[in-house]
Amino acid sequence: MQQIFNFVIKNKTFLLFLLLFSIAIALTIQSHSYHRSKFINSANFLTGGVYGTMNSVDQYFNLKTENEILAEENKQLREQLLNSKFQTDSSFIDSSYSKSLYKITIADVYKNSYSSTNNILTLNKGRKDSIKEDFGVMTSNGIIGIIANTSNNYSTAISILNTKSKINAKLKSSNHIGSLTWDGKSTRLVQLEDVSQYAPIKIGDTIETGGESSIFPKGIGIGTISDFESDISGDTYTIEVKLFNDMTNLGTVYILESINRPEILNLENSSNE
């Protein structure tokens, strides 16, 4: 017993180092698994408050660009409105944008990161605004990520610039689907993997969301094809997608709540059994 105590006292620095280091490693490993980073995330009172103060200062400097973005979006919405007047008679109704299927909440980006390989955004809306996990995040240009954690007033979202992120996407010109991943290299390019060899791919074509995941509606823009190559096996293509969004410059975003998602998940679970 005496010897054990002696050993502990003699090596106390090393033992403390080992203890702290293993706590840190454990938290790191935990954060690498999707949806598990419960303890260490920036959706809490302290960090949210600090980022909020900074954001309110920062917003003044970006007012001009923010205005331009809003004006551009107004223009697009007005065009849609004008065009829709002529379409009301036709039987075709674009149900994916209809209000009853998706609820939209506006949020500010408090913290945007894009320099690491697992980037996470902090937004200023949380459980109080009925934001939950697995809601989609987008801007007027296209998708940005998926909500991963929420606190009362804040939430964090896994950006599409995250090597852990996987989002269903498809070609606009056909219905060939693939999954959108990121290799951690460029903030302008993401990769669309597992696209069938039969897909008609042309550089410059648009990639949009596939609607299979029920997080995002079908047909929200993601980016354009900038390059593509066959896999080693030759069965599938890997496509380099140039994003519509400038991920390094995000101000105001929309959080999408899919009203039908619980129903769809329920149905899928029951049919799996």
Binding site: F21, A24, T28, S31, H32, S42, V50, K111
Partner: peptide, 11 residues
Amino acid sequence: LFSDSGGVHAA
């Protein structure tokens, strides 16, 4: 905590 990176900075 501020940069959402698990425990990498601590380690």
